[in-house]
Design a protein around this nucleic acid. Structure first.
Lengths: 226, 226
DNA sequence: ACAAGTCCATGAGCACACTCATATATTTGG
DNA sequence: CCAAATATATGAGTGTGCTCATGGACTTGT
């Protein structure tokens, strides 16, 4: 009785609140400002690079006070992280929604995934380069393992796992194949590095590299064993 | 004539300076201060972590002015990098100087190398952990590729190449084996991560992991091909 | 042993990312 | 429709890593 009542009294208002949508001025403004911050930051990152872009400049370009930026993003880096989230989400979506790929061989799906990511990044190449340099920051090791980026990595790795499950007979998993998605994440980072340094027209070298390495990798995965 | 004079006047003093070794007060002091900075920084990194350690605190503990720190290291991170340089150099030396390893199988050499590195790092585990978190800093990708750390990586990769050449018949290189040292560098970073999260007594899990993965890796390298 | 030259410790100062108390704008409740 | 409650934009302030002009300590040449 009490429990049921509690449940009702708690769920009702919530549902009501969510169902009703006055879209108050506040919410509108919030969304608009957030968008303006991201746009300003991205544009500045592109032209000046990450380090040389100050939060003050971002705020100024977005037409808000400097402090306001930090009501929307906890750190300057979070703004950039947001950008990479878009990148991953968009690439995953583009592979998911492509019916032609549904029954394509695994290496083609993976190629499409990475390709979509690089296409997304292309206009921001300078900024990405800066982010790479900046990424090492402290002493030497890694950088892929930050708590903040882990969720993003998780989403990515999960999707790769889906693709693998779809294409590989379950009984075929080699002792190492459970690592495959994680390895692919690192592989992607390597490919990104390759791409950044690739000055061939149309980034041909990168595409060739992807083609070749994915063939080898997938066939290794399939007939497995050492 | 003039050129020769110039050459002489320029080279003579240099050679003389290097041949003679008065070990002036200046040089003594410089070495001492450098050592004090590294010691202070390391001690603070250990107790407070990397971020919470201010350069002011390092200077204070070393008994010098804050600005002086930057006469010895370009950035705070360079101080930490210096620490990892020691780590790599010491590990390489320990493998080189161990006569028992001279004719040991490849996987044993590699195990010894990584083991020496981890032993060196053991007392500073907390600081390393902090450095890892800190390493990702900006958006998402990498961090191993900083220009500054490249020289260190190069030294490491070069040594691994030596070990491989020593153990693998030259005619046996598979199409991928030229990548092996670079891959090993990444493998090492992965092992380091594993080690950091390994709470088993005596880091047994890490040792077991190294053992197993190195066997697999080396045998893959040897009989090569997919 | 002295003067000229060179090195380098110094600490006030700078620009930056980020915080916080306050003011202001918006929503809510009656 | 107004007052209380709430959300949030604001920008001066804080502590940070790092720079730089200066003077004083050391070295060199004679």
């Amino acid at each position: 009785m009490t429990i049921r009542k509690k449940l009702l009294s708690k769920t009702k208002p919530r549902v009501a609140a969510k169902a009703k949508r006055p879209i108050g001025k506040r919410a509108q403004n919030k969304a608009a400002i957030r968008k303006r911050i991201v746009a300003s930051a991205l544009s500045l990152f592109q032209t000046k690079g990450f380090d040389a872009t100050t939060t003050k400049a971002i705020a100024r370009k977005a037409g808000i006070a400097e402090g306001t930026v930090f009501n929307y993003f906890r750190t300057k880096e979070d703004i950039a992280l947001h950008f990479f989230e878009q990148e991953v989400d968009q690439a995953i979506a583009s592979v998911r929604e492509n019916p032609r790929l549904r029954k394509a061989p695994l290496e083609e799906k993976l190629f499409a995934l990475v390709h979509a990511q690089l296409e997304f990044l292309a206009p921001y190449e300078k900024f990405i380069g800066a982010a790479f340099i900046h990424a090492l920051k402290p002493a030497s090791p890694l950088g892929i393992f930050s708590h903040r980026a882990q969720e993003l990595r998780h989403r990515y790795v999960g999707f790769v796992q889906e693709l693998l499950d779809e294409s590989l007979p379950k009984n075929q998993h080699t002792p190492l194949s459970f690592l495959a998605p994680e390895v692919f994440w690192i592989y992607y980072l390597g490919a990104l590095l390759f791409w950044l340094h690739d000055s061939s027209p149309g980034k041909q070298h990168t595409l060739a590299f992807l083609d070749r390495s994915l063939s080898i990798g997938v066939s290794f995965l399939k007939q497995g064993k050492r």
